[in-house]
């Protein structure tokens, strides 16, 4: 038992690595602050293309969405970070992470918005247009707000996934929370820094997971 405590909950080590992990946490939050809004917006664009009047736009979005939903994000990230340099395109870890997440997120958020947009009856659009709103105004003021409300739990659930996915950035040596913790682990030969990182993620995400469970129950009821 002592061994277990010492290996996973070593307080003195945790205290020692705390500042390093806080730094990592900031980087994680910084990545989130960029990839979540960008991904959510790109996803909306993808969804609008997928449900648009233009046949070409609809046909093009299907392979895009399927491709980036099929390829695991880590594969995409490693492909961008260590594959593209062979073609003469070298991106910094931060750039690689941003690009990989943009492609992955836009596909996932896109599918969610699409479901939302499709749940809005054509009558809404027709009524809005007949009051004199343009197609763009109809989308912005009438269709999208209702669509988003309908799929809010799914959007939130996907956002939790995105925050968790930022831990993949550690694989390409971006000094975010998990990377810092794993570095501390390899220096101290002790898993406590990783447990501390897990605690950070829990503090960050547990309230959101709880909120999500409530939202899901309310929508289902």
């Amino acid at each position: 038992m002592d061994q277990l405590l010492d290996q996973f909950f070593n307080l003195s080590i945790m205290q020692q690595v705390f500042p390093l992990l806080v730094k990592g946490l900031w980087m994680t939050l910084k990545v989130c602050a960029i990839v979540i809004p960008v991904g959510a917006f790109a996803g909306l664009v993808v969804a609008l293309c997928a449900t648009s009047q233009s046949r070409l736009a609809r046909i093009l979005t299907v392979p895009y969405v399927d491709l980036f939903r099929a390829v695991p994000p880590l594969v995409l990230l490693i492909f961008i970070h260590s594959g593209l340099p062979f073609a003469g395109i070298s991106l910094s870890p931060f750039q690689s992470v941003t690009l990989a997440f943009l492609l992955n997120n836009s596909a996932f958020y896109g599918e969610i918005y699409r479901a939302g947009l499709e749940s809005i009856g054509a009558g809404q659009r027709e009524a809005a247009r007949s009051t004199g709103l343009t197609a763009l105004q109809t989308n912005i003021y009438v269709v999208i707000p209702q669509a988003v409300r309908n799929v809010l739990p799914d959007l939130l659930s996907n956002t939790i996934e995105v925050v968790k996915l930022t831990s993949l950035a550690s694989v390409v040596a971006l000094p975010e929370l998990l990377y810092s913790a794993d570095m501390a682990r390899s220096i101290t030969f002790n898993a406590s820094p990783l447990v501390l990182a897990a605690a950070f993620y829990l503090v960050l995400l547990w309230p959101v997971v709880r909120l999500l469970s409530r939202l899901e129950r309310r929508v289902a009821a």
Partner: peptide, 23 residues
């Protein structure tokens, strides 16, 4: 809740690097 909130990679690393040291 914990398994839904934690990134799987974090749990994998904790278990993979932590367990051998406790036998």
């Amino acid at each position: 809740d914990m398994l839904r909130a934690l990134p799987p990679l974090v749990i994998i690393l904790v278990v993979y690097f932590g367990l051998p040291n406790v036998g």
